[in-house]
Computed example of a mutant assay.
Amino acid sequence: MPTISLTDIRLFLLRIVRPLDPFLLIITLAIMACTYLVMLSASPERMGAHLTNVVVALTVMWIVAAQPPQRLNNFALPLYVLGVLLLIGVALFGDVSKGARRWLDLKVMRIQPSELMKIAMPLMLAWYFQKREGSLKVRDFLVAMLLLVVPVGLIAKQPDLGTAILVLGAGFFVIFFAGLSWKLIIPTGLIGIIGIVAVIAYQSEICAPQVKWPGLHDYQKHRICTLLDPSTDPLGKGFHTIQSTIAVGSGGFLGKGWRNGTQTHLDFLPERHTDFILAVISEEFGLAGVLIISILYCLLIARGLMIANNASNLFARLLAGSVTMIFFTYAFVNMGMVSGILPVVGVPLPMVSYGGTALVTLCLGIGILMSIRQSRRRR
């Protein structure tokens, strides 16, 4: 019977640890440790399912981290095509739940194809720009925009505005890092600012019930209007915003203490374990708790951008940059939504909110960053 020596054990452990980036791993585990405390307070009955999601997500992260970026490159086009076909399938045959057609029943399993596009989109665009490296023209950026608009439009049609924003952000960051001209970005930004100012200035007129907003569903218009004045529907669309801001404001600097949040434990705070878990952190741990989470996100983003800057080729740089900024988009939109400065669009707080699909997707993104870092280290 063969014996196992300490050297064999050491080599086995080294093989497991080698693909992982220590700095990213420590930050990820630190965020998950904070999540454990908050989840025990916000929704202790879901801890078993949450820990299972964490194990699955970390396993996916390790598997992806062990793959070379060249292999990820090979999956870019098939994943994108599969994602678009599945989104078309959702539009034609998808299951309707709570007024939205987002799920596709494959008999064997029930999937939400829009989640696939959060990773498939930046993979596809990074692959596309690498193919045209050194000879980029304006038409290449137009084609990239078309590749982005098709899945975003299909997702927004479901309707799923939150996921559409995340996929749009993931794709836009690739296009931006590929060299999109500021001459196109600045005018678009100015138009957006003018539109926001106009909505605020003429709120009473354009928020009237009989006014239809082109391109948006009635409930999306209602969310924006109640964001501007939640008191117009305090027990309906404005309820989430009102209760969340009360929880955020009542926490002060150090909070009320773990498991002592009144908004949380008296059931005033809706979706406290998912989209509004930041309000639980703010109420029980105060501004100090929010700052700790924010600093961890900043460290993660800084490390991701460093990996992108040092990547060995254009595909890896664009992919690492976009994946990193996905974390920024998640955190920014969720924090803005919870604090009442952005409309409620159903975007979770990255790696903190309860939910297996989002957690696995984000850990897959961290695995991609580790894969790119490991490839650079080998070189």
Results as ranks from 00 to 15, higher is better:
363 C>K: 03
53 N>I: 01
157 K>W: 08
306 M>K: 12
137 K>T: 15
305 L>A: 04
230 P>T: 00
332 F>R: 14
19 P>W: 00
283 E>Y: 06
215 G>N: 07
100 A>L: 10
53 N>A: 15
8 D>I: 03
179 G>D: 07
367 G>E: 01
248 V>K: 05
378 R>P: 02
308 A>R: 04
349 L>T: 05
214 P>F: 01
214 P>A: 05
346 G>Y: 08
206 I>W: 13
23 F>T: 13
349 L>D: 02
135 S>D: 07
360 V>G: 06
80 Y>Q: 00
133 E>P: 01
56 V>I: 15
36 Y>N: 13
208 A>Q: 02
108 V>W: 12
135 S>C: 04
107 K>T: 14
34 C>W: 04
157 K>Y: 11
139 R>A: 12
21 D>G: 13
13 L>N: 07
373 R>P: 00
306 M>V: 07
7 T>L: 14
348 P>I: 09
41 S>C: 11
45 E>I: 01
223 R>Q: 07
343 P>K: 05
90 V>E: 08
57 A>T: 13
313 N>F: 07
358 A>I: 09
107 K>D: 13
30 A>T: 15
137 K>E: 14
251 G>Q: 03
244 S>K: 01
94 G>K: 09
41 S>Y: 13
38 V>E: 10
294 S>N: 05
272 R>D: 00
36 Y>F: 15
134 G>H: 12
205 E>H: 11
86 L>N: 03
357 T>P: 08
186 I>Y: 12
153 G>Y: 08
199 V>N: 04
36 Y>A: 15
174 V>R: 01
353 S>I: 09
272 R>H: 09
42 A>G: 13
375 S>W: 10
236 G>V: 03
74 N>F: 13
38 V>I: 14
147 L>H: 01
280 V>M: 04
329 T>A: 14
304 G>Y: 03
120 A>Q: 04
152 V>P: 00
168 L>S: 05
209 P>H: 05
237 K>N: 05
359 L>R: 01
134 G>M: 14
310 N>C: 05
84 V>A: 02
277 I>R: 13
275 D>E: 04
22 P>G: 09
22 P>Y: 07
245 T>R: 02
190 L>P: 14
120 A>T: 04
142 L>N: 08
78 P>V: 11
318 L>I: 03
342 L>D: 02
82 L>A: 15
374 Q>H: 09
258 W>F: 14
51 L>V: 14
207 C>T: 11
240 H>K: 02
351 M>F: 12
17 V>A: 15
279 A>G: 09
340 G>Y: 10
182 W>A: 04
368 I>V: 15
56 V>L: 15
142 L>C: 11
88 I>E: 02
357 T>R: 06
141 F>P: 06
174 V>Q: 02
188 T>R: 04
31 I>G: 07
55 V>P: 04
